[in-house]
């Protein structure tokens, strides 16, 4: 056994074993269970369980709140991902030079990332509260009228997007910054000798060579944005008028409030899983093709 494990290729299994166990217990088993539960009429009390086949899926097609929540999720994703990656990239370029001020700026910009999303959501909902919030107070003093922000059906989702970008762009910035710093400086030196302007250097050198990092950020942010929940749960609970009710928020509502429809919620979760998988794979393939073109 020891001899077998001492072979480098075999020893690798030993090292990944703990991670595989965690992945199996906390990811694979729940995913498979969720798919299976989606075919049952099952409540949180595990009483009167019955197999209903595709009935939960038929039900979700006719459920207006399912369509609304997926629409809201899509809207969130379309606003949040481009905004976050663009902002992250812009700031990463700005802080890529080495000076004490830039190093301080990097740390400051990264602070929201290490803060709890729940705390941040609570703080922002207090700051924006129309009655006790500091920002509505100043908007009124400035004669802009009373802004209701998170209580306004048209503003609530953009504010959730802003909150999410503000919280997470530091992480995107760090990943892209690492990519920028790993680009060989001789490319830039050669470009400068050839008379390339900073914008040309960015679009012809930085961006193409940063594509793997950008791809990683886009795909991980996309997966995260399709699962947006915490900030919505804390700041708006899906309101006003369901305008911020996202897919995961709706799944949570169906499963964890009366009548506790675990089976139905699992069916919606399965659909969300499939959508995220298709989107991620499609984007991944697209980025791979682009990278091949760049490096060819």
């Amino acid at each position: 056994m020891r001899d077998w494990l001492n072979k480098p290729a075999k020893a690798a299994y030993l090292f990944i074993f703990p991670s595989m166990v965690i992945l199996l217990v906390f990811t694979l088993v729940p995913v498979v269970s969720s798919v299976v539960i989606g075919f049952f009429n099952l409540n949180m009390f595990f009483k009167d369980t019955s197999f209903v086949g595709l009935q939960n899926y038929a039900k979700l097609l006719a459920d207006r709140r399912v369509w609304n929540s997926f629409g809201n999720t899509l809207m969130f994703m379309l606003m949040e991902v481009p905004l976050q990656v663009t902002l992250g990239l812009f700031v990463a370029v700005l802080v890529s030079r080495a000076s004490w001020f830039v190093r301080l700026a990097r740390s400051v910009l990264f602070i929201p990332v290490v803060c709890s999303l729940t705390s941040i959501s609570i703080i922002w909902s207090l700051i924006l509260d129309p009655t006790i919030g500091i920002i509505p107070y100043y908007t009124q003093l400035l004669g802009l009228g009373k802004c209701t922000f998170l209580k306004d059906p048209n503003l609530a989702m953009p504010i959730i997007v802003f909150l999410s970008v503000w919280k997470n762009f530091g992480q995107t910035m760090v990943i892209l910054l690492a990519g920028i710093q790993s680009i060989n400086p001789t490319y830039y030196e050669a470009a400068m000798v050839e008379g390339a302007k900073p914008a040309q250097q960015f679009f012809r050198i930085t961006l193409p060579l940063l594509l793997p990092n950008v791809a990683f950020c886009v795909i991980t942010n996309l997966i995260g944005s399709m699962q947006v929940f915490d900030q919505v749960y804390v700041a708006t609970r899906g309101g006003p008028m369901f305008r911020t009710e996202t897919a995961v928020m709706y799944i949570y509502t169906r499963a964890f409030s009366a009548p506790f429809q675990l089976g139905y919620a699992s069916a919606i979760a399965t659909v969300l899983f499939v959508i995220i998988m298709i989107l991620s794979l499609t984007l991944n393939r697209w980025f791979l093709k682009r990278e091949e073109a760049v490096y060819a």
């Binding site: 009655t131 998170l150 209580k151």
Partner: peptide, 12 residues
């Protein structure tokens, strides 16, 4: 005020 919950009204 619009969209205000009972808990918010307690505070107001």
């Amino acid at each position: 005020p619009l969209g205000t919950t009972g808990a918010d009204f307690d505070n107001i």
